[in-house]
Simulated scan of single mutants.
Amino acid sequence: MATTDFKAITVEYATRMCAGSHIGNDILLLDEIAKMPLPKEPRRMESLFLALCLRGSARYFVDSVEHVVEPGDLIIIHKGRVTYDCSMSPDCRGIGIIIDYNFFKETIKSVHELSALFLFSRTHPVLRLPKERADFLRDTFVRMKVKIDESDNHFRRELVQSMFLSMVYEMCNVIYSVQSKNDECKTRAEDIFTQFLQLVENNFRSERRVGWYSEQLCISPKYLSETVKAVSKRTPNDWIDSYVTMELRMLLRNTQKSIKEIAQELNFSNQSFLGKYFKEHVGMSPSEYRRS
């Protein structure tokens, strides 16, 4: 995908990047997964992104975690997540929806349980769907596309919302099943790891010390390190550095902020220290990366 000056993935951005059926900047339907504007460089998702893989495979990162998608997998990327290094096999086929978050919330506002279930997908962004569920989503997608393309239909927005809500019910039924099983099987170590990642996500811009995170979790740094390594095969420092490096890459590539301003924003003591940190983790200086 060509590099652009856009800082985030929105419905408006996606509509400009690729052809698809859409209603203003509320919702965009793409009948080919290959058309989706998923980037190589870090980009923040400012809409809700849903996709169903029908054939082939794809790989991508969300917030430093790699995901592999195969036929029957449902992808959910929430607003605020950072995605990058996306690649697809030559035979990859699928469908996708990019939906404005306000439009999404308006659509599900009458059903509080759906919102709570969808939050679960923040930590489970890839879900395997039974064939009958995947077929339902695909068929509903086709009907939604027909209605979106009926530009003279006075009620097309309401019709699309109604059909999208039926899709959300089906997705949340799967989420509910997965959540129920996870609640039964979840170990203390997995619970600590989940809490640790949530803390990192919310605080990595100002805190990079493992000791700070262990204090918030009321456990020792050693126990936190052993637990995180056992569950994820990565150390707490690896996770923290991944979040920081990803944010630095995004700020350098997608903003006009000076390196000094970026250093202040991410709580580095000075510009020189940021430069050493970035080169250690990326292999080049911030200036070289910005020019590359």
Rank of each mutant, 00 (worst) to 15 (best):
Gly24Tyr: 10
Gly275Ala: 14
Met171Arg: 03
Arg291Ile: 03
Gly72Asp: 07
Pro71Tyr: 13
Glu70Cys: 10
Asp152Cys: 04
Thr15Ser: 15
Tyr60Lys: 01
Pro286Phe: 04
Met171Ala: 13
Lys257Phe: 12
Lys260Leu: 06
Ser57Gly: 08
His67Pro: 00
Trp212His: 05
Leu52Arg: 06
Ser47Thr: 11
Lys233Ala: 15
Lys279Tyr: 04
Val65Arg: 06
Gly94Ser: 07
Leu252Val: 12
Ala34His: 05
Thr83Tyr: 04
Leu28Met: 13
Phe104Glu: 03
Ser115Asn: 13
Asn203Glu: 11
Cys218Trp: 09
Arg188Glu: 15
Leu217Asp: 11
Gln264Cys: 06
Met45Lys: 01
Tyr243Phe: 15
Gly96Val: 05
Asn173Ala: 14
Arg249Val: 05
Lys147Pro: 00
Val69Thr: 09
Phe103Cys: 07
Leu127Glu: 08
Asp152Tyr: 07
Ser166Gly: 05
Glu158Arg: 10
Thr227Met: 07
Ser151Thr: 15
Phe141Gly: 03
Ile75Asp: 00
Ser151Glu: 15
Tyr277Cys: 01
Tyr277Asn: 02
His281Glu: 02
Lys79Trp: 01
Arg157Glu: 11
Arg93Trp: 04
Gly275Pro: 00
Ser110His: 12
Val69Trp: 00
His22Glu: 08
Ala230Arg: 13
Glu280Met: 07
Leu114Tyr: 10
Thr10Leu: 05
Ser110Arg: 11
Lys181Tyr: 07
His154Asp: 08
Arg128Cys: 08
Phe164Arg: 04
Val68Glu: 15
Tyr60Trp: 10
Val282Asn: 02
Val69Gln: 02
Glu113Ile: 15
Pro39Cys: 03
Ile76Glu: 01
His154Pro: 01
Asn182Ser: 12
Leu29Ile: 05
Thr227Ile: 09
His154Gln: 12
Ser177Phe: 05
Glu32Trp: 09
Leu38Thr: 01
Arg59Ile: 03
Met171Tyr: 06
Asp191Cys: 06
Arg209Trp: 02
Phe136Met: 13
Arg55Thr: 09
Lys186Thr: 13
Asp139Tyr: 10
Ala2Arg: 11
Asn203Gln: 09
Tyr169Phe: 15
Ser220Asn: 13
Ser57Arg: 08
Ile75Arg: 01
Asp238Tyr: 14
Pro39Ser: 13
His112Glu: 14
Lys147Arg: 14
Glu113Gly: 04
Met36Asn: 00
Leu52Gly: 07
Asn203Gly: 02
Lys79Gly: 03
Lys147Met: 12
Leu127Gln: 08
Ser89Asp: 14
Pro39Gly: 02
Pro71Leu: 13
Leu224Lys: 07
Ile75Thr: 05
Ser162Phe: 12
Ile148Pro: 00
Asn237Tyr: 10
Tyr84Val: 03
Ile33Met: 10
Ser121Asn: 08
Gln256Ser: 15
Arg16Thr: 09
Thr3Asn: 13
Ser89Cys: 06
Lys147Thr: 08
Leu159His: 04
Cys172Ile: 06
Glu106Ala: 14
Ile9Pro: 01
Arg122Phe: 05
Phe193Asp: 09
Gly24Gln: 13
Gly72Lys: 09
His124Pro: 02
Ile219Phe: 10
Arg55Pro: 00
Gly275Thr: 14
Phe278Asp: 01
Leu119Glu: 14
Leu38Glu: 01
Val11Glu: 05
Arg205Ile: 02
Ser232Pro: 07
Thr245Glu: 11
Ser166Ala: 14
Leu30Trp: 04
Tyr243Arg: 05
Thr107Ile: 08
Pro37Ala: 06
Val82Asp: 00
Ala19Pro: 00
Val65Leu: 04
